[in-house]
Design a protein around this nucleic acid. Structure first.
Lengths: 235, 235
DNA sequence: CATTGTGAAGTGATTCACAGCA
DNA sequence: TGCTGTGAATCACTTCACAATG
């Protein structure tokens, strides 16, 4: 089969770039954004790709390639205007608007998430908290009262919630996920150690603490066994 | 006498394959392990690559390729013995031993991590908790007392801690990281929204909640705008 | 002339498709 | 026969290296 999906340039230069940003690039844009914010807070007006790359912890070629997918925002011989680029990336990610999120499962982790200030400061409003346990419903966490899952649909609609965070035990995750999807949520951040099944239009990202530790353990074990730990080489 | 540096593929060229497991595969092994544990708990004795792949949320070709890096543990025409494969993967990851971890930064998230039962159940012992705030030192969380950072080195040595978890604010992260590395920790799981600089022998993995939300927001925005629809307003 | 933006080359991961074996 | 294990093909991402340019 040769249905050429060639999306070669051939694009007028007054048009905005094709919306085909590689996933790996998308995952780094928030990192660049944070680096730019830090620089901006230090009153740095202009930064080269080298400066930015260092601040973001990547190499400069990758950074330039990544930015090239968004458009032509640099100045040859000079670098990037920090605030201008910051705005462009924020817009690309969709941070020029606010996002409402709900958190389901207000145990240890749910509490921490509900109180996490990093959400609000980046344009994510926690619209509501939910728990299956009727004991917990009504409890106040931060400035929100925990709601019953039965109210999910109404709240999702009223607050135009697009993103749901699942912080339940593994066993409850799929059920909660189904309810979120049913209520109209189309992006899910899953902290439960479970594989979620969702319809095609729903995006799921997984954060799994014990998996991260296990990956570290694997490498740790190899170091201990004495295989020359020659990581991504010098030279 | 023996040059400690050049221990390449030295003496371990016995029966097992060269230990060059791709990073992407390593990251999935814990997922397979969990799927196998679930199957084992349901008294499933044998599973095909198709069954396993479904349980793990990947496709079967990828799963078979991944497992082929570990060795030849399946039976053609039959599938995999669940418990046998489970043990092989656990051994490969290094979970046949226990790992001591320390958590630094006992705020909201640190508390949640300290109480997270998923660590212990997978062979990760929390050996100690630390906080820079002297007010917090001595406070009891779970069954541990928060220690002062000054005691880090002693505790790391005594408990043979290999893995450190950083759950501090961004501003404190690099300093804490340096202290962990100085104390002898060589794997770090970083929850602080900061880029860490470490010596080459130290492994860092990052978990960043707000980055995950931003990635979801990007895709969410794309869905909302429809794929061809271009907003006006770019130069 | 310092630095961007980008084709081209290089590297790594995924998927295909089927040979080989229980 | 059914299913694994794996070369070969494909796809995705990274890095190189340099022409274009403010």
């Amino acid at each position: 089969m040769t249905s050429a999906r060639s999306r070669k340039s051939g694009r007028a230069r007054d048009e905005r770039p094709e919306r085909g940003i590689p996933e790996a690039t998308v995952a780094r844009l928030p990192v660049y954004l944070r680096a730019l914010t830090t620089l901006s807070d230090s009153d740095v007006a202009t930064a080269s790709s080298e400066d930015l790359a260092t601040a973001a912890g990547v190499n400069s070629a990758k950074l330039r390639k990544d930015l090239s997918y968004l458009g032509t925002y640099g100045t040859r011989g000079v670098g990037y205007d920090v605030n201008y680029l910051r705005y462009q990336i924020a817009r690309e990610i969709g941070l020029t608007q606010d996002w409402s999120v709900v958190i389901v499962g207000i145990g240890n982790l749910g509490h921490a998430l509900a109180n996490y200030s990093g959400f609000a400061s980046r344009g994510f409003q926690v619209a509501a908290l939910f728990d299956v346990d009727p004991e917990r419903v009504g409890e106040v966490v931060g400035d929100l009262k925990i709601s019953a899952l039965a109210d999910l649909e109404v709240i999702v609609r009223e607050s135009a919630v697009a993103i749901g965070v699942i912080a339940t035990p593994a066993g409850a995750a799929q059920g909660v996920c189904d309810q979120l999807v049913e209520a109209g949520v189309s992006s899910i951040l899953n902290f439960a150690p479970a594989v979620l099944t969702v319809p095609g239009h729903v995006d799921v990202r997984k954060v799994d603490l014990s998996i991260e530790l296990q990956i570290l353990a694997y490498h740790e074990q190899r170091k201990a066994h004495g295989f020359g730990a020659l990581e991504a080489g010098a030279l």
